[in-house]
Design a binder for these strands. Structure first.
Length: 353
DNA sequence: ACGGATGATTGGAT
DNA sequence: ATCCAATCATCCGT
């Protein structure tokens, strides 16, 4: 405000001086009454138009003269100051916004997935694949895993090369703009602060591109995850021994095929699967058995005989070692129960035994 | 390629 | 929280 008024008076003062140089005092007074600023502008415009008629050499000479004028630095600094103030008053509020939460989320996810973190993929995935191929214990999951790792490494590589490309383009463009502005700052008032601001604007633009890259990378990782790590997709049948153990328990507890938490844990341990897998198995088994008992009759008999034989062996060993005390009466029950049909609906059946 | 088998998930009921 | 029932997605023998 204060500066601006000072500038205005200064400019009119200059204008007045110029006029005084040119003509007589009378005309000056007349122009002042008409409105001097308009006249000045008209003059300036005329001068600008005249430049286009000048030869290149003349224009260069004029430019040089202007650059060498002793008042030029002072004038430029004043103009820069005014510009700075105007810009700040227009949009000085939204400076230095905090880091975008969205981009932070994306960064965190990429870091967690090992895409943007320190280098650790690549070779190790190949090593895992080699180890799986070489032998040892080439479980299915490790093969799946190495496949997943390889795909992840691919995404990671694309991400990094794209990121590098963007960064390079960004710095190139920034340099270009900075050079351009520095060059132009010789002929028009551009403060270093303004250049800084321009650079910040460029960086913001490029970071929005970067966010798009991060977002699409995240999407790719999510798709990969859902393809490879979704348990349902890479379902493997349990091995024969595990199925046998589970079936044995199921058919020998046909009257009440609901293993307790402890029983589930033990079965899980025996079968090398999780407790929830045991629960799933029993859930599926119960419903499927109930739906079609006839179909499972053969299986039921098989396991009933099997447990009977096992029990006989155990009791034989026991009688060998100790006295022939109590033979497992449960075996006879399980054989008979398979013929009942809907055994585990008879909840009080166990009271017979 | 196809269909049944099978492990996992989902939604509702208790 | 657990179970049932339906359903999905994959496996696997033919």
């Amino acid at each position: 405000m204060d500066d601006q008024t000072r500038m205005m008076t200064g400019l009119t003062g200059l204008g007045g001086l110029a006029q005084a140089d040119v003509g007589d005092p009378d005309s000056v007074r007349k122009q002042q009454s008409l409105g001097q600023p308009q006249q000045d502008i008209g003059d300036i415009l005329q001068q600008i138009m005249a430049i286009t008629d000048e030869s290149l050499d003349e224009a260069q000479a004029r430019k040089h003269a202007l650059n060498c004028h002793r008042m030029k630095p002072a004038l430029f600094s004043v103009l820069c100051e005014i510009k700075e103030k105007t810009v700040l008053s227009i949009r000085g509020v939204q400076e230095e916004d905090p880091p975008d939460p969205q981009i932070m989320r994306l960064d965190n996810m990429l870091l967690a997935e090992g895409v943007s973190g320190p280098e650790k993929g690549g070779g190790s995935a190949a090593a895992a694949a080699a180890a799986a191929a070489a032998g040892g214990s080439p479980t299915d999951s490790s093969i799946e895993h190495s496949d997943y790792r390889a795909k992840l490494a691919q995404i990671r590589q694309i991400y990094h090369s794209e990121l590098e490309k963007y960064e390079q383009a960004c710095s190139e463009f920034t340099n270009h703009v900075m050079n351009l502005l520095r060059e132009q700052s010789r002929t028009r008032p551009i403060s270093p602060k303004e250049i800084e601001r321009m650079v910040a604007i460029i960086h913001r633009k490029f970071s929005s591109i970067q966010m798009q890259l991060k977002q699409s990378t995240c999407e790719a990782v999510m798709i990969l995850r859902s393809r490879f790590l979704d348990a349902r997709r890479k379902r493997r049948n349990f091995n024969k021994q595990a199925t046998e153990v589970l079936n044995e328990y199921f058919y020998s507890h046909l009257s009440n095929p609901y293993p307790s938490e402890e029983a589930k844990e033990e079965l899980a341990k025996k079968c090398g699967i999780t407790v929830s897998q045991v629960s799933n198995w029993f859930g599926n088994k119960r419903i499927r058995y109930k739906k079609n008992i006839g179909k499972f009759q053969e299986e039921a008999n098989l396991y009933a005989v099997k447990t009977a034989v096992d029990a006989a062996n155990v009791s034989a060993q026991a009688s060998q070692a100790n006295s022939p005390a109590t033979p497992n009466s449960g075996t006879t029950r399980s054989i008979s129960s398979t013929h009942i049909g809907f055994p585990f609906l008879l909840t009080s059946f166990s009271s017979y035994v």
